[in-house]
Amino acid sequence: MSDAAPGIAVTAAPGVAFNYRYAFRLPAEKLAAAQETHAQACEKLGVARCRIIGMRYRVLGENSSEGTLLFKLDPALARAFGKQGIDAITASEGKLVDAEITGTDAGAEIAKQQGLRAQAAAELQRIDGEPKRSDLKSDERAELQNQRAAITDRIAAAKSNVGEQTDSLANTPMEFDYESGPAVQGFDGSAPITSAANVFVGSATVTIGFVLTLLAALAPPGIILLGGFLLWRRLRPRRRPVPQADTPA
């Protein structure tokens, strides 16, 4: 079964900001090392092309752990970096179990916000010319000041939105999620047998664990009751047999 993610070969379109997410499953003892390999691969690219913006590793129990690694990448390197990340997981006897690539039309949003900003700037220019009128009343002047403040806020919001969309085009987010466990079974003839064996072992483990827990909970009271019963039998007064009178012949 191939480890390549379906639809991973995404052609970057002008003005589209992509977001990558990959989920991996691999043996618990190799999860931390694989996560470190991905982190080092990012560090080798340099902070101008790849930055680690978040990392988490958590032990859930015996032979069970999970983790997350978050990156910001040069868009031109994102696709290749994702494929190299999958190869590292395969080398660690793991599998890619989920892949998601989403896109946002940042270019269209930038054009929209720039249009709104230009429109607001024109309104602002008109309002700034109103106070020069000699017949302007005080309440009208106050209303123009309120309108000017509202338009200024709109211009600032549009400018901030354009900055966010521009940043999304320059830095591609990528998320690696790690989960310990057996790799996805293939579709060969041994897969059903292996799966059934895994279910049997898991069921047997749960049953044995339940029995041991039950014995551990009941053993102390049982020992006390047994000891008390044996002590009672040892100390209880014994009945003497009643002699029977001889019957006349």
Score class of each variant (00 low, 15 high):
Asp139Glu: 14
Ala78Leu: 04
Leu96Phe: 04
Trp232Ile: 11
Trp232Cys: 09
Ile89Asp: 03
Leu225Asp: 05
Ala32Thr: 14
Phe200Thr: 14
Leu169His: 05
Met55Glu: 13
Val242Trp: 06
Val162His: 02
Arg117Thr: 09
Gly222Thr: 15
Leu45Asp: 00
Leu73Glu: 02
Lys72Phe: 10
Ala170Trp: 00
Pro75Met: 01
Tyr178Phe: 04
Ala48Asp: 06
Ile110Gly: 01
Gln113Gly: 03
Ala204Cys: 10
Ile193Arg: 09
Leu69Lys: 03
Gln165Lys: 14
Gly129Glu: 15
Ala76Ile: 10
Ile110Thr: 05
Arg49Met: 02
Ala34Asp: 13
Pro173Met: 00
Pro182Tyr: 03
Ala150Gly: 12
Val211Ala: 06
Ile193Ser: 04
Lys159Phe: 08
Phe187Ile: 15
Ser180Lys: 02
Val97Gln: 00
Leu215Gly: 10
Asp153Thr: 15
Ser65Cys: 13
Gln185Met: 15
Arg126Asn: 07
Val16Met: 08
Arg58Trp: 06
Val97His: 01
Gly85Glu: 01
Glu36Asn: 12
Phe229Gln: 14
Val211Asn: 03
Arg236Tyr: 14
Tyr57Val: 10
Pro75Ile: 04
Gly107Leu: 03
Ala17Lys: 05
Ala32Asp: 12
Ser195Trp: 09
Leu26Ile: 09
Thr194Cys: 09
Val184Asp: 12
Lys112Val: 11
Ala157Phe: 00
Leu215Thr: 13
Ala150Phe: 11
Lys83Gly: 14
Gly115Lys: 06
Asp139Val: 12
Ser190Cys: 10
Ile223Asn: 01
Thr166His: 07
Ala33Lys: 05
Phe81Met: 01
Thr247Gln: 10
Ala204Arg: 11
Ala4Gly: 12
Ile224Leu: 14
Ala216Cys: 11
Ala23Phe: 06
Ala41Val: 07
Ala219Asn: 12
Ala249Ser: 09
Gly103Cys: 08
Leu230Ala: 08
Ala80Asn: 14
Gly222Cys: 05
Glu100Val: 14
Cys50Tyr: 03
Ala245Ile: 04
Leu96Thr: 08
Lys44Pro: 09
Tyr20Lys: 10
Asp3Thr: 08
Ala108Cys: 03
Ala76Pro: 12
Lys137His: 10
Lys44Val: 15
Arg21Phe: 07
Val184Thr: 15
Gly46Val: 01
Gly129Trp: 11
Ala4Glu: 14
Pro192Met: 02
Thr68Met: 07
Gln35Pro: 13
Ser180Tyr: 02
Ser168Arg: 04
Pro27Leu: 01
Ser190Trp: 14
Gly54Ser: 03
Cys50Ala: 04
Ala156Pro: 07
Arg79Met: 14
Leu214Asn: 07
Ser134Gln: 12
Ala39Val: 12
Ala34Pro: 13
Ala183Gly: 12
Ser203Tyr: 05
Ile52Met: 03
Ser160Ile: 11
Asn63Gly: 07
Asp139Gln: 13
Val59Gln: 07
Ala111Lys: 05
Glu36Trp: 08
Gly209Ser: 11
Leu60Lys: 03
Gly129Val: 13
Ala48Met: 08
Gly129Tyr: 12
Arg56Ser: 08
Tyr22Leu: 13
Gln145Cys: 06
Val199Ile: 04
Val47Pro: 11
